[in-house]
Every structure is written in structure tokens, then in C-alpha cells.
């Protein structure tokens, strides 16, 4: 099957994810071997059970990897360029948002994030955006900081108001 240029096939993705999970399995095995994965004086050591979990992750993903490499099934599209682009338009701002949360606190960052998405993706007029972008973080602030007393990351603006 001929696919459009720039299209990622399912097989490529399966190989990539299998490699990633093989790496994860290796990390799990490595760290648990480090803290001891054998039978100690008083029974199994701390890494005993997780080490074998790591072995199973590695083995299972290796089989998935081999199945994908030697697969004779026709190539299936995983995502087309347009689809990848629209996913990136969500993923990239979200990654920036997570970084910004640590700098200026979750409430201000959420207000900006909400406003950005409503404007760029939703194309709402500013008079709809402003109340929502301000009220939702404000309500969340009341809910978590004041009623449920759950501390979330805060920045200079919250400091200014004494929280």
C-alpha cells in the first residue's frame, strides 16, 4: 500500500514504542539490580520482585518488536501529516504550560492556557474568553487552597495576595 509522504505507518510506530519500552524494561532491571534483586539473608531483597517485572517488560516488548519487524501485513497508516500537526498544536502548548506552572504558579498559568486554547482553537470572542479564563482558575483556587487545603504550585501573584 502506498502511503502519502510524511505519513507514519503503524509498523514504524510499533517498532519505536517497542524499543522505548525495551529501554524502560532495561532501566527497571538496572535500578533494581543495583539495590539488590537476589535472595538475601532475610528473604527477597528490595529489588527482587521489580527486577523480574523488568525482565518481563523487556521480554514482552522484544517479542512485540520482533513481530513488528518481521510482520508481513500490509502497511497501515498510523497518522497522517495533518493529524500529526493538529496533535502537536495541543502537545506543544501543554508542555510549555507544565514548564510555566513551576515558574508562575498553576492558577495564572491555567488562565493563560485556557485563554490561549479558547482563542486559537475555539476562536471564541474575547468577551467569552475573559470571564471563563478568570473565573475557572479562581473557583479552583477557592476549592483547593481554601476549602480542601490542598497546596498546589503558586507563584509571585499568589504571594502578593498573601497565599
Amino acid at each position: 500500500m502506498n502511503l502519502e509522504r510524511g505519513t507514519v505507518s503503524t509498523r514504524t510506530m510499533e517498532i519505536a514504542v517497542a524499543l522505548l519500552i525495551m529501554g524502560l524494561g532495561a532501566v527497571v532491571m538496572y535500578d533494581n539490580w543495583r539495590i539488590g534483586a537476589r535472595w538475601g539473608e532475610y528473604g527477597p531483597q528490595a529489588g527482587y520482585f521489580p527486577f523480574y517485572i523488568g525482565v518481563m517488560i523487556f521480554a514482552a516488548s522484544t517479542i512485540v518488536f520482533l513481530q513488528a519487524v518481521f510482520s508481513r501485513k500490509p502497511r497501515q497508516p498510523f497518522a497522517e501529516p495533518a493529524q500529526l500537526k493538529s496533535i502537536m498544536s495541543l502537545v506543544v502548548p501543554t508542555i510549555i504550560y507544565i514548564g510555566v506552572v513551576y515558574a508562575i504558579g498553576i492558577y495564572i498559568a491555567s488562565a493563560i492556557y485556557l485563554a490561549y486554547f479558547m482563542r486559537v482553537l475555539g476562536r471564541y470572542p474575547w468577551r467569552t474568553i475573559a470571564p471563563i479564563a478568570i473565573c475557572v482558575p479562581a473557583v479552583l483556587f477557592m476549592l483547593f487552597e481554601i476549602w480542601f487545603l490542598v497546596p498546589l504550585p503558586k507563584g509571585p501573584v499568589e504571594d502578593f495576595f498573601g497565599y
Partner: peptide, 9 residues
């Protein structure tokens, strides 16, 4: 199996 084991890990 791989997904379940990731959960365990």
C-alpha cells in the same frame, strides 16, 4: 503483558 508489567513497575 508489557503494558501490565509497566503498571507493576
Amino acid at each position: 503483558i508489557a503494558s501490565m508489567m509497566i503498571g507493576f513497575a
